[in-house]
């Protein structure tokens, strides 16, 4: 059996070593990517613990619990980053994207290694959908933070509200892909549609 910790070590070790040879933005990107993977492992621990506590089935945990836990834990590195240093808008967006990419990469690796033999088309669809979903949810949140910072109104209620939006988005995705058939295809398309939808405000904000 391959443990998730072993997968994390195997992927993270070369990435951490590479930090010795790169500087500035590249180094931050790698660190945020590894943080995303660590956040994914931590959220798996927390979800597993809560599953034992409440005694739900695996499907129910996937639909109801993991969106909440994953979105909250994904926030931790972003919040630490915001509190410790005050990154520029571009740097914040880059780090958020790296965080989401790291999270999605680790989740995909664990899913593929755990589910045995699956077709290439499914691997591609899942890889793209999960990747886009995690990137979109963190990127949208970081866009909200950037906008609030520009207008100097970083309100707690607004921030919690934005996190709730990403939880609902993630929950909807997990619900749709939980059953095979048409609903799962709609679910796989959902992150791409969301990515297309947030692109115009993203472009407008960067101007």
């Amino acid at each position: 059996m391959i443990y998730a910790e072993n997968i994390l070590l195997c992927i993270a070790a070369p990435l951490l070593l590479s930090m010795l040879f790169v500087r500035d933005q590249a180094r931050r990107y790698v660190l945020a990517f590894v943080s995303g993977m660590a956040a994914c492992l931590l959220s798996a621990y927390v979800t597993g613990f809560l599953r034992l506590l409440v005694g739900w089935e695996a499907t129910e945990v996937r639909i109801f619990l993991s969106p909440v836990v994953e979105e909250l834990i994904k926030l931790i590195p972003l919040l630490i980053l915001l509190l410790l240093s005050e990154p520029e808008d571009e740097a914040l967006l880059l780090l958020a994207v790296a965080l989401g990419t790291g999270f999605a990469t680790f989740e995909n690796c664990c899913t593929l290694l755990g589910s045995g033999e699956i077709g290439l088309s499914f691997v591609l669809i899942r890889g793209l959908a999960v990747g886009v979903m995690h990137i979109v949810s963190v990127a949208a949140l970081s866009l909200g933070i950037i906008a609030a910072r520009r207008l100097q109104v970083l309100s707690l209620a607004g921030f919690v509200g934005a996190v709730s939006v990403s939880m609902t988005f993630h929950g909807l995705y997990n619900l749709l892909v939980s059953q095979p058939g048409a609903s799962s295809y709609v679910g796989f398309c959902l992150p791409l549609v969301a990515a297309v939808a947030i692109y115009p405000p993203y472009r407008r904000m960067r101007r």
Binding site: V160, G161, V165, T168, G171
Partner: peptide
Amino acid sequence: AANEFGEIGTFLL
């Protein structure tokens, strides 16, 4: 359900 988080988010926003 996640839709309750959606409702909470709507109220706060």
